[in-house]
Design a binder for these strands. Structure first.
Lengths: 341, 341
DNA sequence: TTGAAAGCGCTAACAG
DNA sequence: CTGTTAGCGCTTTCAA
């Protein structure tokens, strides 16, 4: 009742008095099988409750229909959206996803890559950890020709394709918006400067400032882990200064929200005294008061695009000329930065 | 440079002038191999860059070291935490996770189960969709003896173990708290009554009301999908009535927060006019103003427990007598329900 | 303690 | 269009 042997192509071959190879062909719709035979095969297969043994098949075909995903952490709204998109595309194409978290540690990232390699994933979808400075730990994969697609936190590599947004432009727009609201003394809250996303957002900020004739002082960039705690600490530090900035462009929403809460507690008015802009369009941005102006950032689509790019590469349908896919972002203006109505 | 053939146990057998079976034994630390030989095998294996071919191994051994996860949706803070916990335990034990989303649809849930079955997962971790009324679609698994562990949204079945919290008690506590703050006309916002989590929370609410001599009117239970939109709709409906309830116990935080925002827009004071309690301790509960009183609910631990229970079952280390594991929750009291300081 | 050999279930080259 | 055959890489009896 428990482990009655699985039925194989031989069983159905015997039942039909044909050879196993014909069954194998029929099952995968090979052109060299008569229609009637194919029909019969399909029919008895389902009648007998046949299910293909993927291990035998993989053993022969040397591919696994498995895609590995390595990212910093699962427990954020953005990454959840990304995975959700990946899962959809992958499943539709018959691939399975296996997921691993680097927790922003290079060591864990390397370990995950190694595990994925050993599991013989067909390809990899990666968003780099904050600690990662080079791609040496990917060499095992590159040597074997296993394709890697980076998403969001990317790094240039001749063998890799990327899916991302234009962080420079987004940073530029966020900052320009603050300037348009009359802010002059704007600071930027940045993340790990190993990562394109944070480097580019900062660059965008800087260029916007310069283009509008504003000064970028020494203290204008504050680096942190960009989480709730970091936001609190930074808020307290700012409150120590003689003069508060009149605009804050934060590298993500968590930090922006945390700062808003702390400043409000200290009696600072948002946006009258300080305008704040975040990044990500997390659900909290719509709940904090005042609602947070932020950059919307298509997580699900990013996951979908990265996955279909990888799958196309796997199937040889992707041009090697493709370097990166840039998705559209948008500035969502809400009360936290609206001085002028 | 790309596809130089993988090295196999035969390669290392040849190199050492011993048989492949000995190598196989040595690699997995079989007792019937001389120590020195074992050493040599391990050494040359790593020197030659050997990696085991799991497909060949699985084909023989008939297990896959893969665990399937089926849940409603990935893009919520709670499920992200759960997955995060699962991923940790599974990886540590050498298992891989494959994940699929039911999107609250029975059809998709059934399809996921079927796919998982075909992928021959060793076991399954499942949180049931809102539409699911029975476990018929799990029969293929049960027949084959593939173990299933339910987490959070569970259903009783002689072959399945569950990991969950005491939703009845949590609902009872949440409601009692509202009563202790002077609320008398309390309503409950419930979810799908196919699901234990929502049924039990409602029961807890009802018992608390009755135990405190309060009436549970016909309109005291409002059923919905418990999302942002549902919260808005419900808020507007409530505002149409002549009299607002003085307490709301919502089945989750998203709905509670959405209601708070809408009521506030209409000039209702929280908690003076209406006290609100949510469920889940989502990040938004700490951002909404006033901060939301809610039930904290250990997602990561739930994922960890479910996974280790499954793995122990797989290894035959789990008593069949185990029925369910109940984790502790806690009531987090914040401003949204604090009338008495 | 080791080796020979069979076979897990499937695919594909080759022959017909 | 169909069948024969060999083998993917590993594990595991059985015999030595």
């Amino acid at each position: 009742m428990t482990t009655n042997r699985d039925i194989t192509i031989y069983d159905i071959a015997k039942a039909l008095n044909i050879s196993a190879s014909t069954v194998s062909r029929g099952l995968k719709n090979h052109p060299h099988v008569r229609k009637e035979v194919k029909q019969k095969i399909l029919l008895t297969a389902s009648k007998m409750g046949y299910q293909q043994n993927k291990f035998a098949s993989n053993l022969r075909q040397k591919h696994t229909l498995t895609i590995g995903v390595v990212l910093q952490t699962l427990d954020s709204y953005f990454t959840a959206k990304v995975i959700s998109g990946m899962e959809k595309i992958a499943n539709d194409a018959g691939y399975n996803l296996i997921i691993s978290q680097s927790q922003e540690s290079l060591k864990k990232e390397s370990a995950s890559i190694a595990t994925m390699f050993n599991t013989r994933v067909d390809g990899l979808l990666v968003s780099l950890s904050n600690e990662t400075r080079d791609l040496d730990h990917f060499n095992v994969l590159f040597k074997k020709g296993i394709p890697v697609v980076f998403f969001d936190r990317v790094m240039d590599h001749p063998k890799c394709k990327c899916v991302l947004i234009n962080n420079f432009k987004a940073g530029y727009e966020a900052t320009s918006h603050l300037i348009s609201q009359g802010c002059k003394n704007i600071i930027h809250l940045g993340g790990s400067q190993n990562r394109n996303v944070y480097v580019d957002r900062y660059k965008g900020y800087k260029h916007a400032m310069i283009d509008h004739g504003l000064e970028v002082g020494k203290k204008s960039l504050i680096l942190s882990d960009l989480n709730h705690t970091a936001g609190m600490t930074i808020a307290h530090e700012l409150l120590q200064e003689k003069k508060l900035p009149d605009g804050i462009f934060a590298g993500n929403d968590a930090t922006a929200v945390s700062i808003i809460c702390e400043l409000k507690k200290a009696g600072v008015r948002i946006p009258e005294d300080v305008c704040v802009v975040g990044f990500n369009d997390d659900p909290i941005s719509r709940v904090v008061e005042p609602n947070l102006t932020t950059i919307h950032y298509p997580g699900r689509e990013m996951g979908e695009m990265a996955t279909s790019t990888l799958i196309n590469t796997l199937k040889g349908k992707q041009s090697d000329l493709l370097n990166s896919i840039v998705l559209n972002h948008s500035l969502i203006i809400r009360e936290s930065s609206m001085r002028i109505k």
